[in-house]
Amino acid sequence: TTVEVQGVEYRFDNPEEAEKFAKKMAKSLNLRVELHGNKWRVE
């Protein structure tokens, strides 16, 4: 599972970890998070 934060990609073996990371990043950067296939995008 991939998390893309403002163009930078982070890879996770565990989808739940990816989701937690994406939501945490979105909250700290005041952005929103969307799931596209198996990629979380924070923008």
Score class of each variant (00 low, 15 high):
Glu16His: 12
Glu19Val: 05
Lys20His: 11
Asn30Ala: 06
Ser28His: 14
Ala26His: 02
Phe12Ile: 01
Gln6Gly: 08
Val5Tyr: 08
Gly7Glu: 04
Arg32Gly: 10
Gly7Arg: 03
Lys20Val: 11
Glu9Pro: 07
Thr1Gly: 08
Thr2Pro: 04
Val3Thr: 01
Gln6Trp: 10
Glu4Phe: 11
Thr2Trp: 15
Asp13Gln: 10
Trp40Tyr: 07
Ala18Pro: 00
Glu34Met: 10
Phe12Leu: 02
Asn30Gly: 14
Leu29Thr: 03
Arg32Ala: 11
Ala22Ser: 02
Lys20Gln: 11
Val33Lys: 02
Lys20Thr: 12
Glu17Gly: 04
Val42His: 02
Leu35Arg: 12
Ala22Leu: 03
Lys23Gln: 09
Glu34Cys: 12
Tyr10His: 06
Phe21Met: 02
Val5Leu: 09
Val42Gly: 03
Leu31Lys: 05
Glu16Leu: 12
Arg41Cys: 15
Leu29Ile: 03
Glu43Gln: 10
Glu43His: 11
Val42Gln: 03
Lys27Gln: 15
Ala18Lys: 00
Phe12Ala: 00
Glu16Gln: 11
Arg11Ile: 13
Ala26Leu: 02
Glu16Cys: 10
Phe12Tyr: 04
Asn30Arg: 06
Val42Leu: 10
Gly7Thr: 03
Leu31Pro: 01
Glu19Lys: 06
Leu31Tyr: 06
Ala26Tyr: 02
Gly7Ile: 02
Lys27Met: 14
Glu9Tyr: 06
Ser28Val: 14
Lys27Tyr: 13
Asn30Ile: 03
Glu34Ile: 12
Glu16Thr: 11
Trp40Leu: 05
Glu16Asn: 10
Pro15Asp: 07
Glu43Cys: 14
Arg32Cys: 11
Gly37Ser: 05
Lys27Phe: 13
Leu31Phe: 07
Thr1His: 14
Lys20Gly: 07
Lys27Arg: 08
Glu16Val: 12
Glu9Leu: 13
Leu35His: 11
Val5Asp: 01
Glu43Leu: 12
Ser28Gly: 08
Asn14Trp: 07
Arg32Glu: 08
Glu17Ser: 09
Asn38Val: 05
Lys24Ala: 15
Lys27Leu: 15
Gln6Ile: 09
Asp13Glu: 12
Gly7Asn: 05
Ala22Arg: 01
Val8Cys: 13
Gln6Tyr: 10
Ala18Arg: 00
Val3Gly: 00
Leu35Asn: 06
Glu16Pro: 04
Glu43Trp: 14
Val42Lys: 01
Leu29Asn: 05
Glu43Lys: 07
Trp40Cys: 04
Thr1Ile: 12
Thr2Asn: 05
Asp13Asn: 10
Asn14Phe: 09
Leu29Lys: 04
Glu43Ser: 12
Ser28Trp: 14
Ala18Ile: 00
Phe12Val: 01
Val42Ala: 04
Arg41Trp: 11
Ser28Lys: 15
Arg41Ser: 10
Glu43Thr: 13
Arg32Trp: 08
Lys24Pro: 00
Tyr10Phe: 11
Trp40Ala: 02
Leu31Glu: 03
Thr1Gln: 10
Gly37Asp: 10
Leu29Gly: 04
Val8Thr: 09
Leu29Pro: 03
Asn30Met: 05
Lys24Asp: 15
Met25Tyr: 04
Leu35Tyr: 14
Val33Thr: 06
Leu29Gln: 05
Val33Glu: 05
Met25Ser: 05
Asp13Val: 09
Met25Pro: 00
Glu4Tyr: 13
Met25Lys: 05
Met25Gln: 06
Arg32Pro: 11
Arg11Phe: 14
Glu17Pro: 02
Glu19Ser: 05
Lys27Asn: 14
Ala26Asp: 01
Glu4Val: 14
Asn30Leu: 04
Glu4Pro: 00
Leu31Ala: 14
Lys39Asp: 05
Pro15Arg: 07
Thr1Val: 10
Met25Ile: 14
Val8Glu: 06
Glu9Gln: 08
Phe21Leu: 02
Lys39Gly: 11
Val42Glu: 04
Gly37Pro: 03
His36Gln: 11
Val5Met: 06
His36Ala: 08
Thr1Asn: 10
His36Pro: 01
Phe21Thr: 01
Gln6Leu: 15
Asn38Asp: 11
Glu4Trp: 11
Phe21Pro: 00
Trp40His: 03
His36Tyr: 11
Glu19Phe: 09
Lys23Asp: 06
Gly7Cys: 13
Lys24Arg: 12
Arg32Phe: 08
Lys23Ile: 13
Met25Arg: 03
Ala26Gln: 03
Ser28Met: 15
Leu29Cys: 14
Leu35Ile: 07
Leu35Met: 08
Ser28Glu: 15
Phe21Ala: 02
Val8Gly: 03
Phe21Glu: 01
Glu34Asp: 06
Thr2Ala: 08
Gln6Val: 10
Phe21Asp: 01
Glu9Trp: 06
Gly37Leu: 07
Glu34Ser: 13
Glu34Trp: 13
